[in-house]
């Protein structure tokens, strides 16, 4: 059973009080340049998932509390949560450094800037 803490309203409960929304920090190409999104980019956005065995950044919703979406970093083998952070925020720097796949690229230039985004 996962025990989740909402970083927005602070409620603390098991996974039935929350809803897992899958991989976080997926950039939507059509948001930045809607005029020339290729099929492959749209596929990557909609369907391709990094799905690592280890550190996973994901979205959760505080269903029974404030109703807000937020981010979590969790290990997919030990199932241990490493951090909870707001939907517009970045994870702690040490977690950004451990990130793999597309997350590593996404966090690369943000690590220096620290936590704020």
């Amino acid at each position: 059973m996962l025990v989740v803490t909402c970083p927005v309203c602070g409620v603390h409960g098991d996974e039935t009080d929350f809803h897992c929304g899958g991989q976080a920090h997926v950039a939507r190409p059509a948001s930045t340049r809607p005029e020339n999104v290729t099929d492959a980019e749209q596929r990557d956005y909609l369907f391709i998932r990094h799905n690592p065995k280890g550190l996973h950044f994901e979205r959760w919703r505080c269903d029974r509390g404030c109703g807000k979406w937020f981010h979590a970093a969790r290990d997919t083998v030990s199932l241990e949560f490493k951090a909870f952070y707001g939907v517009t925020e970045l994870p702690p720097v040490e977690l950004m450094k451990q990130a793999t796949g597309t997350w590593a690229e996404f966090f690369k230039d943000k690590i220096k800037a620290g936590k704020a985004s």
Binding site: Q23, E58, T76
Partner: peptide, 13 residues
């Protein structure tokens, strides 16, 4: 279960 998991152990709910 709803979340990504490689542990072959799920949740009670």
């Amino acid at each position: 279960d709803s979340y990504n998991n490689y542990s072959q152990r799920g949740s009670f709910p």
